[in-house]
C-alpha cells in the first residue's frame, strides 16, 4: 500500500492534538504543584485541598488525547487498514485538530495561573476552597468548547 500525503497530514493533526495540550497540561499541573508544595511545606493539612486544584489543568491533556484517538479511529489506523486519504481530506483532518491543539495548550496555562491563585485561597481560608476551584474551572469552558469543535469537525468530514 502506498502512503499518501493526506495520511501524513491527518496523522500530523493527531500528533498535534496530543502533544500541544499535553505540554500545556504538564506545565500547568507543574505550576500549581509548585505553589501547593509551598503551602504544604508550612501547613501539611492542606494537601488534599490543593490536590484538587492541581488536577484541574490536567484535563486539557486528556481532551487532546481523546481527539487524537478519534482521528486514529476515523482514518482507520486503529483497525489496521489505513484509509487512502487524498491530500484535501488529510488537510481537513489536520484543520479539525487545530482548535483543541491550540486552545488546549494555552488554556491549560491560564487555568494553572487561576488555580495557583486558588492555592493562595486555600492557604488563607481553607473553608473557601470551592470558590478557588470555581474560578479555575471557569477556564475549562473554553477547552471544552474547543474539544467540541474539533470532535464535531472530525465526525463531519467524509473520509470513505
Amino acid at each position: 500500500m502506498e502512503i499518501t500525503l493526506g495520511q501524513v497530514f491527518a496523522l500530523l493533526g493527531a500528533a498535534l492534538a496530543v502533544f500541544l495540550p499535553g505540554i500545556g497540561s504538564a506545565r500547568g499541573v507543574g505550576m500549581v504543584g509548585e505553589a501547593a508544595a509551598g503551602v504544604v511545606a508550612e501547613d501539611p493539612s492542606k494537601f488534599s485541598q490543593t490536590l484538587i486544584l492541581q488536577a484541574l489543568p490536567g484535563t486539557q491533556g486528556i481532551y487532546g488525547l481523546l481527539t487524537g484517538f478519534v482521528v486514529m479511529q476515523r482514518i482507520g489506523l486503529l483497525g489496521g487498514n489505513l484509509l487512502p486519504l487524498t491530500t484535501h481530506q488529510g488537510l481537513m483532518v489536520f484543520a479539525a485538530c487545530l482548535p483543541i491543539s491550540i486552545v488546549g495548550l494555552l488554556s491549560a496555562i491560564s487555568q494553572a495561573r487561576a488555580a495557583a491563585a486558588g492555592v493562595g485561597i486555600v492557604a488563607k481560608r481553607p473553608e473557601e476552597v470551592a470558590k478557588g476551584i470555581t474560578y479555575a474551572a471557569m477556564v475549562e469552558t473554553y477547552a471544552v468548547l474547543a474539544l467540541l469543535a474539533s470532535i464535531l469537525m472530525l465526525f463531519g468530514i467524509r473520509l470513505a
Binding site: 505550576m31 509548585e34 505553589a35 501547593a36 508544595a37 509551598g38 503551602v39 504544604v40 511545606a41 508550612e42 501547613d43 492542606k46 495557583a116 492555592v119 493562595g120 492557604a123 488563607k124
Partner: peptide, 17 residues
C-alpha cells in the same frame, strides 16, 4: 512570576501568622 511559585505558596501560608 512562575519562578516564585513555591516561595509564594509558602509566603501565602506564612502571611496568616
Amino acid at each position: 512570576d512562575e519562578e516564585f511559585l513555591f516561595t509564594s505558596g509558602r509566603v501565602k501560608a506564612l502571611e496568616n501568622r
